[in-house]
Design a protein around this nucleic acid. Structure first.
Length: 355
DNA sequence: AAGTCGTGGGA
DNA sequence: TTCCCAAGACT
């Protein structure tokens, strides 16, 4: 016998199983909009575990939105390094400046106005409106999509099913405690109604779950299959000067790893490179030696295999890029891929005694 | 309106 | 090893 799920059932569960997270307010209170916004942007396509240390670091360094707005964008990019999706960092800073300059540091309290700010899309606008301002906004993220698809046994694949799922979510969203409800559904999806092997035995909505009744919960939500990821290849140029500095370069502001620093490299293409092919793309003329091994890294839509060519040059040699002392690499806005290249180069070059 | 955009952890 | 995917936004 299938019962009808209610928001109250979920809120009762949330009140005693609620996770303590640094951006959450005590029960019954509204959270600080700045913290909600900062956490929600960081949480876009990113796990709670990965976000926590970054959230704490940002909040300690920039306690208010005006502080973040006053920071140089380069410092924000550096602080974001490692978290991924770097357009978020640039938009975060832009949004902070907008709110500080045009709104006296106050975030808008409705979805429509929030949606106008850079880096705030449909989901984030609803989340801030509900969690920070107590508005009954319909919050639709991957968790809610999954929970609704199962609760109502929606077998139509995503993303086509999204409008239906949103209508179903809207019908359940309460006018009381909408912020707690939004976080409750997401917590349910993150801890019980998980993508694989959901824990239906302890789910507050198990009695009203149509997919559970049919035994198809694990197969929902259906998704269109993704194209396989191709592999691209390149050669990175590890250039050290006699004074112990390394040649870096800033990537273009848009696109992959936009605005971040990099070890200069060839184009990334499907075909393998030979060192003689690659020389024409080197940032400087030098005696390149190919280091053994390869750096592997996977992005959302392709795999990358980078070999590393190393060379030593005289200091002050003309080159495109910036020379960075080895001991200050940590302070650079180097994404994880480039830190892998650095680690590889240091290990291999040290083994060969060529550093 | 599909494609683009990172990373790390778990199965 | 390989794949999936996590509180999506932007173009």
């Amino acid at each position: 016998m299938l019962t009808s799920p209610t928001a109250d059932q979920l809120l009762v569960w949330y009140d005693h199983s609620r996770r303590l997270l640094p951006w959450r307010a005590p029960p019954g209170q509204l959270a600080d909009p700045y913290r909600v916004w900062l956490s929600e942007v960081m949480l876009q396509q990113t796990t709670v575990a990965a976000v926590q240390p970054y959230f704490r670091a940002f909040l300690a360094r920039w306690p208010k939105v005006e502080d973040l707005a006053a920071a140089p964008v380069e410092e924000v990019m550096q602080a974001w390094a490692g978290l991924g999706y770097y357009a978020r960092a640039r938009n975060l800073h832009l949004c902070a400046k907008t709110v500080a300059e045009w709104r006296h540091g106050r975030f808008p309290d409705d979805e429509t106005a929030l949606r106008q700010l850079p880096g705030i899309g449909e989901y984030t606008a609803a989340a801030i409106a509900a969690i920070a301002f107590g508005r009954p906004a319909v919050v639709m993220d991957g968790n809610v999509e999954r929970v609704m698809a199962r609760l109502h046994a929606v077998t139509e694949p995503l993303p086509k099913a999204k409008p239906r799922l949103k209508a179903l979510a809207a019908a359940l969203t309460p006018s009381e405690r909408p912020g707690d409800y939004a976080q409750a559904v997401m917590d349910l999806g993150a801890t019980i109604c998980t993508p694989k092997s959901p824990a239906c035995g302890i789910c507050p909505w198990t009695g009203g779950c149509a997919a559970r009744a049919q035994g198809i919960e694990a197969s929902l939500p259906a998704k269109l299959e993704k194209p396989e990821r191709p592999t691209r290849r390149g050669i990175a140029f590890w250039t050290t000067a006699k004074d112990g500095s390394v040649l870096l370069r800033r990537r273009p502001p848009k696109g992959l790893l936009g605005g971040m620093m990099e070890i200069p490299s060839t184009d990334w293409r499907p075909e393998a490179w030979t060192l003689s092919d690659a020389r024409a793309e080197a940032p400087i003329t030098a005696e390149w030696r190919l280091l053994p091994g390869v750096v592997r890294h996977s992005f959302t839509h392709f795999h990358l295999e980078l070999q590393v060519a190393a060379a030593k040059t005289g200091s002050g040699t003309a080159a495109r890029g910036v020379w960075c002392p080895l001991d200050s690499l940590d302070g650079q806005a180097l994404p994880t891929l480039m830190r892998k290249v650095v680690r590889h180069a240091l290990a291999k070059a040290y083994e060969r005694g060529t550093l």
